[in-house]
Design a protein around this nucleic acid. Structure first.
Length: 288
DNA sequence: CAAGAATCCTGCCAGC
DNA sequence: TGCTGGCAGGATTCTT
């Protein structure tokens, strides 16, 4: 569920609450939430305790918190499907799915990683040229000041793959998930099953531009939320759901032409589109 | 090498 | 009532 806007909301919360405080203690309550650390929880604890987070950075759906003393190390966090980062008063009761707790010396608030489905996780990693080495394969996202839109459009146009699949490929462009991919395609009146190589560069440019726009609008609303699963660091939900034009609107009228929005299976998940505005490619071959 | 499928995980809900 | 199957889906790993 958390895509770029939701992760950015969380990043801002962490940046405001969890930086420049000495880390006093780290509790790992679920081993699966620690990824890519050979030494597991012990390694994570050793790296963090006594140090402090300098700031909170983000690329796509990945967050990382560079350390102050160990200048080239950072805590990398991915929320996965159901991850939350909450800044809680220490006396607050543990959440059912609390996985990692980071306590600070001032004991004002503690940082809690809560994750129902454990698709998310964290690890400590070396930062090289400003990015953790484990996420160098993640492309820049459309909100990155150095995002190269022209290069991204060229890359998508050269893909012999359905354009929605390409939008979800974080090595091509990052931050876009199932919700914002459907929204960007609806705004562009393009069917996600059409192949990147079958679209004009103007069409692809429109899709990329719309993805950026819809994510900026969602960010301004505090993100999208369907239930209590996605919340900011204070446990509050965003308001963008009501602004969605396609995602989750099966059977409801298209806001552009009135046709009933259709839900289809795609890549083991659901896609929503307008059957009139976003016509299917001929024969599913994607050449139309 | 690229594209696409399988996999991980738990809670919830419809249907029987 | 209680079980089962389907669904939610991001990123990695495996297969074609």
């Amino acid at each position: 569920m958390p895509e770029l806007p939701e992760v950015e909301v969380v990043r801002r919360g962490i940046d405001a609450w969890a930086t420049k405080r000495t880390i006093s203690h780290v509790d790992v309550l679920h081993a699966r939430s620690i990824r890519r650390c050979e030494g597991g929880a012990a390694e994570l604890r050793a790296a963090l305790e006594g140090d402090a987070f300098r700031c909170a950075s983000r690329r796509g759906k990945y967050l990382w918190l560079p350390l102050t003393r160990a200048n080239d190390q950072a805590l990398v966090v991915h929320l996965g499907m159901s991850g939350q980062v909450l800044m809680q008063p220490p006396r607050e009761e543990d959440e059912t799915h609390l996985r990692v707790r980071v306590r600070f010396a001032d004991d004002d608030r503690e940082m809690r990683f809560v994750d129902q489905r454990t698709f998310g996780g964290m690890h400590v990693d070396e930062v090289i040229d400003g990015v953790p080495s484990s996420i160098t394969h993640i492309a820049r996202d459309p909100l990155d000041p150095d995002f190269d839109e022209a290069a991204t459009v060229r890359a998508i146009c050269h893909k012999d793959s359905e354009v929605k699949r390409v939008l979800l490929d974080q090595s091509v462009v990052s931050g876009i998930g199932n919700i914002y991919a459907d929204e960007a395609l609806w705004r562009s009146a393009i069917n996600g099953r059409r192949r990147g190589s079958a679209l004009t560069s103007a069409q692809v440019r429109m899709v990329v531009s719309n993805a950026r726009e819809v994510m900026l609008e969602a960010l301004a609303q505090g993100g999208t939320s369907f239930d209590s699963l996605y919340v900011n660091v204070n446990g509050e939900s965003g308001y963008f759901e009501r602004a969605l034009d396609a995602y989750g609107r099966e059977g409801e009228p298209c806001r552009r032409c009135g046709a009933a929005i259709r839900r289809e299976a795609f890549m083991n998940r659901s896609s929503y589109r307008c059957p009139r505005c976003q016509r299917a490619p001929r024969g599913g071959a994607g050449t139309g």
